[in-house]
Structures are given as C-alpha cells and as structure tokens.
C-alpha cells in the first residue's frame, strides 16, 4: 500500500498505485479480504477497486486517526491464501443482443468474426464488482480490442448485456443506464438477491472464460 488518506470524515482512502494491473489489484483484494476477516469494530463497508480500497466507518464508533493506525499495523501476510473460482459464462452474440457491434467494428477496424474470435475462449480476471449490484469488471482485453465508452450512454441497457470498454468487459446484472459497448448477452443469473450469503456469481479475484452460444442454446438455457 502506498498511503492512506481521508475521503471525507468517515472513510479511509487506501492507495495502491496508479496503474491497473493484476499485481496491484491482487494486493487490493488481499487487504480487502484480510480486513474483512478481522471484523474491526466501527468499519461498516469496504470497497475494493482496481487500485484503491475505501474503508468506511461509523463516526460514532471510531475516527480517521484511530482506524488508520489499526490498518497500518495489520499483519496482512498471515492471511491464508484464498481460493478463487474459475467460471464459464455463456454469451450469445445474435444481432438482437450485440447492440454496438457495428460501432465496435468501425472503431477497431476489425470484422465481426475477428472481434468475437479475440473475445471468446480466453481468461479474464475479475478486478472488482460494483457500480450496480454484482456487476463484474473483467480484464484484460487484447490491445487491439480496446474501445472508448459510448459518447452518449444508454438510458436502459438490457439485463444480461455483455459490454466492453477500454481493457475491460462487464456484465449488466439487471437493466440499468450504462455507456459500455454491448456485444452480446448471457442467460446466466449473475446477481441473485435472494441468495443473501453469496448473491454474486463472480467475485473479485475469480477467473472467467466467455463461451459463445447460439440463439437457440440461449433460449433453451434456463429451461434445462
């Protein structure tokens, strides 16, 4: 960790660096899991992201100085290695789902087959989940696959949409506004709020492989 500063009066802002890479992100996740395990009094939320960890606390119980001291003295090394999952996510790229394929083709100067060929059957690392409940941020896309977000975000991105932006892919766990380039849709339930213990299918540190399915397989997916 590089340093801890305050974000407002009720959160620690832990900086792990500027870059976005697996090494830095793994450090963030390690700290996140270790702090979570220790159940430190007063902490009411932990938000790990690519290269930052935000620790929010109840100002009635603790304060910046006290909690910063505690976190700096933590022995993170002792934390047991956590087992991360490997998941396969079926994605259908039928025209009715791949809303931005034409835009991506133009921006990247690649054919549809080249884009899908680059996208499928390779491993992605889950850097973080959030923005909306359960949305995974997965990387890294190949260098020739990196495209900016839409100039004007969509007001409604359909549930299950698989989008790409810069070095990342994500999945819209429910209908939401959003600005990512949508290239397909998964029939999988990626966030299930009825499972209180483990609502997220994909968690930080997990590995994901996208598998292409046909429209027919998509339609039959939840009927098996």
């Amino acid at each position: 960790m590089k340093n801890i500063s305050n974000l407002g009066d009720a959160a620690l802002y832990c900086d792990f660096g500027i870059e976005v890479n697996k090494k830095i992100n793994s450090e963030v996740i390690k700290y996140f899991k270790a702090i979570k395990e220790k159940n430190i009094q007063g902490i009411n939320n932990l938000t790990p992201s690519y290269n930052k960890l935000i620790i929010s606390y109840d100002l009635r119980i603790t304060n910046f100085k006290e909690l910063k001291d505690k976190i700096e003295k933590l022995d993170i090394k002792k934390t047991e290695k956590v087992i991360n999952k490997k998941l396969e996510i079926p994605v259908c790229c039928d025209d009715s789902f791949s809303l931005d394929i034409e835009r991506v083709k133009k921006k990247l100067n690649l054919t549809r087959d080249q884009i899908l060929g680059n996208f499928f059957n390779k491993e992605y690392f889950c850097y973080m989940t959030g923005f909306i409940a359960g949305m995974p941020f997965l990387g890294d896309l190949d260098k020739n696959m990196r495209v900016q977000r839409l100039e004007t975000p969509r007001i409604k991105v359909p549930k299950g949409s698989v989008g790409i932006t810069e070095q990342f892919a994500d999945i819209y766990t429910f209908e939401s506004p959003g600005g990512w380039n949508i290239i397909g849709n998964t029939p999988l339930e990626v966030f299930d709020s009825s499972k209180e213990k483990d609502p997220n299918l994909i968690n930080s540190g997990d590995t994901v492989i996208f598998k292409q399915i046909t429209l027919e397989e998509y339609k039959n997916y939840n009927e098996q």
Partner: peptide, 8 residues
C-alpha cells in the same frame, strides 16, 4: 452495511 464490495 458491509455490501459495497458486491455493489449494494
């Protein structure tokens, strides 16, 4: 509380 990390 304690659900920011999953997006809630």
């Amino acid at each position: 509380n304690n659900l920011y990390h999953i997006g809630i």
